[in-house]
C-alpha cells in the first residue's frame, strides 16, 4: 500500500504492537512480495555499501571540475586536534558527511539516500553511531528502515527531488530521515522519532537548489554536513522532550507547498542563487572552455 502519512505508520505501530522499523519492513514485503529475509537482507546490503563507500574514501580524490576533494581529509585532521569546540561524535559526523559527498562528486560508488546529492547525510550519522556506540549491524539496519519509512512518506506526499522541490527535498529529507533513525537508535519512542524528523525538516524548509555550474558539488557537499549535524541536534531536542508545534505530517505538507512555490530558477536549473554569482559564472565559463 505504501504510507502517505507518518501518522499511518504510527497507527500501525500501535495497532500491531510492532517496532517502527518492522512496520516499514512489512510494508516493503507486501509491496514487492518478498520474504522477511529478502527485505532485511536488502536493507543490510544498503548499509554495508554505505560502510564500504566510507572506507574507500581517498584524500587524493578530485572531481573532474576541480571544485571538490580533500575536505574530508581536512576534517579528519581536525578531529585529531585537541582544541575543538564540539565533541567527538559531531566532529566525526561532519567528517563522514563530507567524505561521502566528495566521493560521490568524484565518481565513486555510493548509496543514493534519498538522492546522490544528499548521499552523505544518513551514513554520516549512522556509521558514526555504529562505530562510537558499538551498535551491531542488525540495529543499524533497523535504523535504516526507520529512515526509509520517513523518506517514503516524504516522497509520497511531498518530494525528494531537487528539480521538483528544491534542496529542502534532498538535504532536508535526508536530514529528517537521519534524525528519525538516530532517535530510534537512542531508544526514542514513535512520537520522539516523528518529532525529531519534523524538527529537522523544519530547519531546512525553503532551502533552494542552486548548484554552481550545474554540478553536484557546490553547495551540495557542505550541505551534507549541515544536514547531518542538524539531524543529530534535532534528535537531541526530541529526546529532551521538545516537540514540534506543527505536527510532523503538516511540516511535510508545508515542504510540498514551498517546493511548488519555488521558482524554476531555484530548482536545479542553476539560473539563480549561488549559481548566478559572479564567481559561479566565472567557474562555469572556465569549465566550458576546458
Amino acid at each position: 500500500m505504501g504510507f502517505h502519512k507518518l501518522q499511518e505508520i504510527a497507527d500501525w505501530v500501535q495497532q500491531k504492537n510492532l517496532p517502527f522499523w518492522k512496520v516499514v519492513m512489512q510494508d516493503d514485503r507486501q509491496e514487492r512480495n518478498v520474504s522477511e529475509e529478502e527485505s532485511f537482507g536488502m536493507m543490510r546490503s544498503m548499509y554495508q555499501a554505505m560502510r564500504e563507500a566510507d572506507q574507500s574514501y581517498s584524500p587524493e580524490l578530485r572531481s573532474a571540475s576541480g571544485m571538490a576533494g580533500g575536505d574530508g581529509a581536512r576534517l579528519e585532521q581536525f578531529r585529531r586536534q585537541e582544541n575543538r569546540l564540539i565533541g567527538d561524535f559531531l566532529t566525526e559526523v561532519m567528517e563522514k558527511a563530507v567524505k561521502m559527498a566528495e566521493s560521490n562528486a568524484c565518481m565513486k560508488r555510493i548509496v543514493a539516500a534519498p538522492t546522490a546529492g544528499s548521499c552523505g547525510v544518513i551514513p554520516a550519522v549512522l556509521l558514526t553511531y555504529e562505530k562510537q556506540k558499538e551498535a551491531g549491524e542488525d540495529r543499524m539496519t533497523e535504523a535504516l528502515f526507520v529512515a526509509a519509512g520517513i523518506g517514503e512518506v516524504i516522497a509520497a506526499s511531498a518530494s525528494i527531488s531537487g528539480a521538483e522541490g528544491g534542496c529542502q527535498a534532498e538535504i532536508g529529507s535526508a536530514s529528517a530521515m537521519a534524525a528519525g533513525a538516530v532517535t530510534y537508535l537512542e531508544g526514542g519512542n514513535t512520537e520522539e522519532i516523528l518529532h525529531a524528523a519534523a524538527l529537522a525538516l523544519k530547519n531546512m524548509l525553503g532551502l533552494t537548489c542552486d548548484p554552481v555550474a550545474g554540478l553536484v558539488e557546490v553547495p551540495c557537499i557542505k550541505r551534507n554536513v549541515s544536514g547531518a549535524v542538524n539531524a543529530v541536534v534535532s534528535s537531541q531536542m526530541a529526546l529532551a522532550g521538545i516537540r514540534s508545534v506543527i505536527p510532523p505530517d503538516e511540516v511535510i505538507d508545508s515542504m510540498r507547498r514551498i517546493g511548488k512555490l519555488l521558482p524554476g530558477c531555484l530548482r536545479e536549473t542553476s539560473q539563480d542563487g549561488l549559481a548566478a554569482t559572479p564567481t559561479a559564472q566565472k567557474i562555469g565559463k572556465q569549465l566550458s572552455e576546458k
Binding site: 539516500a113 538522492t115 546522490a116 517514503e152 516522497a155
Partner: peptide, 21 residues
C-alpha cells in the same frame, strides 16, 4: 517507487540523472 528507491540505489556518482540514468 519502492523503499529501495528511497534508500538506494547503489550507484556510481555524482548524479542519478546524468550518471546512473
Amino acid at each position: 517507487m519502492n523503499l529501495f528507491d528511497i534508500v538506494g540505489p547503489i550507484m556510481v556518482g555524482p548524479s542519478s540523472s546524468h550518471t546512473a540514468g
